[in-house]
Design a protein around this nucleic acid. Structure first.
Length: 418
RNA sequence: CGGAGUGUGGUGUAACGGCUAACAUGUCUGCUUUGGGAGCAGAUGACUCAGGGUUCGAAUCCCUGCACUCCGACCA
């Protein structure tokens, strides 16, 4: 798109009510807008990034057989009373509200109860299982304290997938599939090298749950990483027994701060039993469905990418999540420059490469500073100077030096590899 | 929820209890300039978070509320 048409602008100075790097940069670059503590709107550039992350997750969830749905935010009190999760003593993050007739409603902080209930309508026989169902949906959690910009909000998008299996063995198989999908997701969003599967408190139905923790100073969790085995243990569950159980040695573990970018829980029959989601096997016997849940917060992932990959000049987006793949900087000069910029813009678009075309009538310094702040991976400059040589200037956001290349080389370097 | 701090033009800051609340940036005009947030001139823009109190006089001191930030607790 033409940058002159973009309604957002960049800011030179960081907002005073944000300290976290992700919120500071994302606000300065015009990706997000803060409504209140822990509540952010996504502006055009920010929404493009969020949608890219969502797209990656969706592809990987579909790949393992996930079926996408969309559930409601408004929740029926009676449903949650069945699992004893309505009382504020039991679930302290509820936002509750009321109908005109005074009956209570809640804004969903998670969706095990409603989905389990939906599945009751369709699961009866062992022939109906296994199944995996997921959604991208806004969660509401009345956190005591919002912090770290978009990493810990009170209203946030979440991908939550739930698996429904006949027995533990079948569940375990799917679990491994889902875990592998998570590894691919974090690789694709550019966090793979700093993200570790991490053992954490398990809850009622398994010894451990598994988190995906990205090493990052903005992290809220303390984890202990084994850098050769590429696994970690959350501090909350670090005991001699656990270490022995996992075959880890305290001496080889390194303490780090981590952001929990994803998690996987074994739910067993925690929800299927009270909500009566069962099936009949081939011998006519009834069994509780074995469930698992698998969460990733796309907004939190976005914030974490900014925390981990940005530099002094601004954000550095990995290509797959970047709002645009190329930032075409047109140095305002003759009509010929504009015409050449427009031609390149069209040619790149034809090849399926998304381009932000800086056609604004501003000075070079401002364009470059904005380009660095916004963080699009490929920067292409076209000016009188480059045109004289019949070339384009290409610079990667991750590099300091630009190179002059001809058109064929430009397209070759910028084409999608996968 | 406990503790600490902060609320001043769109943004970032300044102002001893005392002139018409200052500066930078942004925005708008004009001129000039055109490869790393240029220069000059002019203009625009704030009931100093809200409500109360002290005082001859409050952005400034006190109280209450609200909001935001940080530390802690909490985080299926």
């Amino acid at each position: 798109m033409r940058q002159s048409q973009l309604f957002t602008k960049t800011r030179k100075e960081a907002p005073k009510d944000e300290v976290s790097k992700n919120a500071e940069l994302l606000i300065r670059a015009g990706f997000i807008h803060k409504e209140m503590a822990g509540v952010y709107s996504f502006l055009p550039l920010g929404l493009r990034v969020l949608n890219n992350i969502v797209g990656i997750i969706r592809e990987e969830m579909n790949e393992i057989g996930g079926q996408e749905i969309s559930m409601t935010a408004l929740q029926d009190k009676n449903l949650w009373q069945k699992t004893d999760r309505w009382d504020d003593d039991k679930m302290d993050v509820w936002f509750k509200t009321k109908l005109k007739n005074d009956s209570e409603l809640g804004l969903a902080p998670t969706h095990e109860e409603p989905l389990t209930t939906i599945m009751k309508n369709f699961v009866a026989s062992y022939r109906d299982l296994p199944k995996a169902v997921y959604q991208f949906q806004t969660k509401f959690r009345n956190e005591m304290r919002a912090k770290s910009g978009i990493i810990r909000g009170r209203e946030f998008l979440m991908k939550d997938l739930y698996s429904f299996s006949r027995d533990q063995k079948e569940h375990d198989e799917f679990y491994q599939l889902a875990k592998a999908a998570y590894v691919r997701i974090f690789d694709r969003v550019g966090l793979g090298s700093v993200t570790y599967p991490t053992f954490a408190l398990g809850g009622t139905f398994s010894k451990y749950s598994e988190e995906f923790q990205t090493i990052c100073d903005a992290g809220e969790d303390i984890i202990y990483v084994d850098e050769t085995k590429l696994v970690a243990v959350n501090k909350e569950t670090l005991t001699p027994e656990v270490l022995a159980d996992l075959g880890l040695n305290k001496k080889t573990l390194v303490e780090k701060k981590g952001v929990e970018v994803g998690n996987i829980f074994n739910l067993g029959n925690k929800f299927s039993k009270p909500l009566e989601l069962f099936y009949v096997d081939d011998k006519g016997e009834k069994h509780d469905v074995i469930m698992g849940c698998y969460g990733i917060g796309p907004g939190r992932v976005m914030g974490t990418i900014v925390e981990v990959l940005s530099d002094a000049k601004g954000i550095v987006w990995p290509r797959e999540v970047a709002p645009f793949e190329a930032h075409l900087i047109e140095m305002k000069g003759s009509e010929a420059v504009s015409a050449a910029a427009e031609k390149l813009y069209r040619d790149l678009n034809k090849k399926g490469i998304t381009v932000l075309w800086d056609d604004r009538d501003t000075r070079a310094g401002e364009k470059f500073a904005d380009a660095d702040l916004i963080g699009i991976p490929y920067r292409i400059v076209i000016s009188e100077k480059t045109m004289k040589e019949n070339k384009f200037e290409l610079k990667l956001r991750t590099e300091d030096e630009a190179t002059l290349v001809d058109e064929a080389t430009l397209f070759q370097k910028i084409q999608k590899t996968s």
